[in-house]
């Protein structure tokens, strides 16, 4: 049974143009799904729909047995689906790390003692135990995002949505956050939905969906998504850097296999092909 399901969902901010249109999709427990698409394709709207921050105009979103069109289910859904947003500065509420992480559990009425345990667990999961009493101001962007993840984990969600959570980070911060997310996915079975512009991030995913104009334009394994290169570009995706080089080499008659995506693959192929 899917852990999250969207059926024919449409949503519009202004009742004129649909930000998301007739969108159907489901996620299985433990999956790592990447969501791609150009700016304005409806990716962030999707994150908010999944988290019941927005309610579909048409169609239905269900998380377990809860449907987001039922007002009484809102908090049950939000507890199960956590979102980490883009700007690290605009999602930390408290001036001390542990208070910030406590915010979610406090909201849903977790008893005091258990909040303490959850803070400990969440900080450990993101590898930030020693920053429990620090002020977020003194942390780097990557560290702030890890705290934001911990804040979400403290609600013991089943699904973690990353809404371009690495977009404002430097490469070191990006790696740091991705490592934490991968670990959560692999070791604790947290389902991950990662909205991103970085094609390299999408390559880890079990499955990729591409949005275009609010519609589900393509769905498949990463290699499938990028195999039709022309179409990928048309959807506003950029081929991974190495893939572009590989394609160009093939065009020039260098004999290497087609469909190369990563720099590792390309290096290996070039080394072996001479």
């Amino acid at each position: 049974m899917p852990i999250l399901k969207a059926e024919n969902v449409s949503f519009s901010y202004d009742k004129k143009i649909n930000a998301v249109e007739n969108f159907s999709f489901s996620v299985e427990k433990g999956e790592y799904v990447a969501v791609l698409g150009r700016n304005g394709s409806g990716k962030s709207t999707l994150a908010k729909l999944f988290n019941a921050l927005l309610i579909p105009d048409k169609g239905k979103i269900t998380v377990g047995e809860f449907s987001s069109d039922d007002k009484k289910s809102l908090f049950e859904i939000r507890k199960r689906v956590g979102v980490v947003f883009q700007n690290p500065d605009n999602q930390l509420i408290a001036s001390i790390v542990e208070d910030d992480i406590a915010f979610g559990p406090e909201n849903v009425g977790v008893p005091r003692k258990e909040i303490g345990e959850r803070i400990e667990f969440a900080l450990k999961a993101v590898g930030m135990e020693e920053f429990r009493r620090s002020s977020p101001e003194r942390l780097s962007g990557g560290q702030k995002q890890r705290i934001a993840i911990a804040g979400v984990l403290a609600l013991t969600p089943e699904i973690l949505i990353l809404d371009e959570s690495t977009a404002m980070l430097d490469p070191a911060g990006r790696k740091e956050v991705l490592k934490v997310v991968e670990k959560l996915n692999e070791e604790q079975g947290v389902t991950v939905i990662a909205i991103t512009h970085y094609m390299e991030e999408a390559l880890f995913a079990d499955r990729v969906i591409v949005l275009d104009g609010g519609k589900l334009a393509k769905e498949g394994r990463p290699e499938e998504i990028f195999s039709d290169r022309e179409n990928a570009v048309k959807l506003g995706l950029e081929l991974p850097f190495a893939a572009r080089i590989a394609d160009e080499l093939i065009k020039r008659g260098v004999k290497i296999k087609s469909g190369i995506l990563t720099k590792e693959e390309l290096a290996e192929e070039l080394c072996g092909s001479k």
């Binding site: 572009r244 080089i245 160009e248 080499l249 020039r252 008659g253 260098v254 004999k255 070039l270 092909s273 001479k274």
Partner: peptide
């Protein structure tokens, strides 16, 4: 630069520049 790399590899691996 990519173009320089492409040229160098093409030459070495035998393709048309």
């Amino acid at each position: 630069k990519i173009s320089e790399f492409l040229d160098a590899v093409t030459q070495r691996w035998g393709g048309k520049t």
